[in-house]
Design a protein around this nucleic acid. Structure first.
Lengths: 133, 133, 133, 133
DNA sequence: GTGGTCTAGACCACA
DNA sequence: GTGGTCTAGACCACC
């Protein structure tokens, strides 16, 4: 009973789409939400779903394969590579989150927003998270 | 007794330098830390301090001027434009912080890090803020 | 059957090239001669045609994008942004012309040229417009 | 009974102030409104009146002197140079106006404003001209 | 001294 | 192919 493999992208964002895809996948695998053996949507299928150029998907898949996170199987379909059966240690996952939080902290300070209000807002956003966007 | 105008940049970051400068200045002005009439470091001076090309600074200044945040004075260095004497309302500043926190929340969820641990880490980073760097 | 997007610049003019391009585009769009969705010549192509440095074109395009008049499409050339399907109201277009005419009127008065002769010359220039150059 | 020597400047304009002064003087002299021997306000006086830096006035005067339009007299005061007793021929003055009208015509065409409306507006502005601004 | 414009050219990122 | 960023450096205009 695996979490289905679905990606969320923001086309307006300055972060390139292929990189959004890669980051999402890396995080889900690190969290153990997506596991070794799970099959990914085909390039064309995902491109259709997200309404982006197939080459964009292909680039993300290719880089993840080179990185060892994905594995290309006989025909064409990709799966999460072996060796990713279990979540990464929690400490490591927290480390991965740190840069984004550091950035948030720096911005909050530049905006002179009191600590507690920053934490309140983040708490609310973490609760909301379950909701569909 | 104004906060002196100083910029911090990260040359390795994917975010372009000129945009880092713009964002920082926008936030400091919104926070009321830098105020209308304050004089900015000259293009050449800042370029020297940050060890970047003067045109990079000039681009940031020029865009901020087009935006109405800075004001050019013929033959003199630029100043924060009139109309920015007071901080933006706190609600508005919090809105500006929201996207970054939203992103952090999304990443935390993808990494399956429990809410409290995320908040703890951010709290710690907000405390550190004053000292290091 | 759109008017093709072509720019005319004067390299000798005190008005910077990138600004000439911006003004021309703004006016053509306001006039409804160039419309939302029309594709602009690529930076390199236009730079070649006008024999200027690509960065000069890029600067004009970038500023117009910040202004909302152009729209960037990743990996593709830029287009006139949505929301500019119809010409601006005639009254607004006339207002845009007013500063230049005001200047002309002031100069004519300083030169003590009779009103009718000024109007005659302008009428002639407006007629010529289609042909030369 | 000469027209008094008074200058109008626009500090917001992209045209540099010293050049505005030069152009105005050249046109008034060409029109015969200001004549040989008339005394100009002193640099400091005019700088005070217009609220600009004395060096700006000084630059304009200096260039006009080099050009032969102004003449420095014994003490310090400047006068319109000899040889400018009579207006320039009307044809020449009209030629001087042409570039500004050409520009107006080009803009009107880009804005797709009908010829008659352009002429009407200019006519109105030429009538207004007498009024103080 | 200030900022602005432009060129030449390298290198990156995206589709 | 597309646009973007940055550097190096020249030259101008203004005060």
């Amino acid at each position: 009973m695996d979490t289905p493999i679905q990606f969320q992208i923001q086309t307006g964002s300055p972060e390139p789409i292929y990189r959004q895809l890669m980051e999402q996948l890396r995080r889900r695998v690190a969290a153990g939400q997506w596991k070794a053996g799970q099959e990914l949507p085909s390039v064309r299928e995902l491109a259709g779903l997200l309404a982006v150029h197939p080459m964009t998907i292909s680039k993300a898949y290719g880089l993840l394969e080179a990185e060892g996170l994905l594995q290309r199987r006989r025909g064409l379909s990709m799966v999460i590579a072996a060796g990713h059966e279990r979540p990464a240690p929690k400490a490591e996952r927290i480390e991965r989150l740190r840069p984004t939080l550091e950035r948030a902290a720096a911005e909050a300070r530049e905006l002179a927003i009191p600590k507690q209000q920053v934490l309140d807002l983040l708490a609310r956003l973490l609760d909301d998270e379950g909701k569909p966007r």
